[in-house]
Design a protein around this nucleic acid. Structure first.
Lengths: 183, 183
DNA sequence: CTAAGGTTTCAGTAATTTCTGAAAGTTTAG
DNA sequence: CTAAACTTTCAGAAATTACTGAAACCTTAG
């Protein structure tokens, strides 16, 4: 399975970006390869195409499955497993968001909540808790909103985009369209 | 400068989370310490509080300044420099978002644009380019949106939050009430 | 049951990232 | 100008993270 230079470029790039996106180089490469290659790929084909060890490939595939970004695809007469993307680009992007939220935000929110419950030890701690509370509320807003966007789905997101002046305009619309309701 | 156990917990946690947020452990700790400590801190105080070398501290402060998360604060009679947060929590969070966008999204968008310009090499490449285009558009939507959010400021974000699932509803209403307008 | 075809695990190694501390650099008081 | 007070740089050490490949482990055909 030789990759076209187009695919090679994309795969290499997604490898480089991988660590910034929460997984390592080979995992990024494997993902790009599977997404861009329309036919299902076997582990061996992937290892060959990327010149990485079979073991590393196995670990990468496992991780991508734990992120729910790829899924196994069983081909009838074949003994080995093949892999395909777990959904549309939109779905994949959402999964990455979701997973990163779990890793990057949730633990912090949880700790902040705990620290806010602690009995403060002196004046200063009260000020510190106020700060922590502020951080907590901000994180909460951002995650809630991003989930809202995810629920909208790609088409509505697009409508929203084309609305022009942006989110501020929605707030105006809201006042016009739902004047009586407080929410 | 001895940290209260509350501050210590928070600082340690932000250190652990640091690498997930795009900077390393000590940078995360330094940031947390500066944000939570209301008085300006000198580099030496930071190094002592965190038990890290003066050199490492210097590098960390430099990085935080390049992210525009902290700024220098000159105390009149003093020779040394002190450091304070570069703004409110909201401002800091925006800066982190912004910086991560630059590192995580922009390079990919740029590559995708380039690859879409390339002359495809055969049937398959055409399909691949279609995929790449899809990814590009998605990233574009997401970045446009996150920028909208940043422009909103925290209060409006809050209003929006309370709207919750109502956003989808407004879009529907909008279609009914403003069918003629294209934006 | 056994062997073949395939996958996973994991100890050890390689690569990368982070940290230290000594040396070089900068600024200002006198 | 010089010295003191402070900061930055950077080569090498330490810590962490990623990768290999051989051995152990499935699973199924016969």
């Amino acid at each position: 399975m030789n990759m076209s230079s187009l695919v090679t470029s994309a795969v290499m790039h997604f490898g480089e970006m991988g660590n910034r996106w929460g997984f390592n180089r080979t995992v990024g490469q494997i993902l790009a390869l599977i997404v861009l290659h329309e036919e299902p790929l076997s582990a061996q084909e992937i290892a060959d195409a990327l010149s990485i060890s079979r073991g590393n490939t196995s670990m990468g595939l496992k991780e991508l499955q734990s992120w729910q970004l790829i899924k196994q695809h069983h081909v009838p007469g074949e003994r080995k497993e093949f892999f395909v993307p777990a959904g549309t680009i939109w779905v994949l992007a959402n999964r990455v968001f979701e997973e990163r939220r779990k890793r990057e935000i949730d633990p912090t929110m949880s700790l902040l909540r705990d620290l806010m419950m602690d009995t403060p030890n002196g004046e200063k701690d009260i000020a510190v808790q106020a700060r922590l509370n502020e951080i907590h509320d901000l994180l909460e807003s951002v995650t809630a909103w991003s989930q809202e966007l995810q629920n909208l789905g790609p088409e509505k997101l697009d409508t929203l985009m084309k609305l022009g002046a942006g989110v501020g305009r929605i707030l105006e619309l809201k006042d016009k369209l739902l004047p009586a309701k407080s929410n």
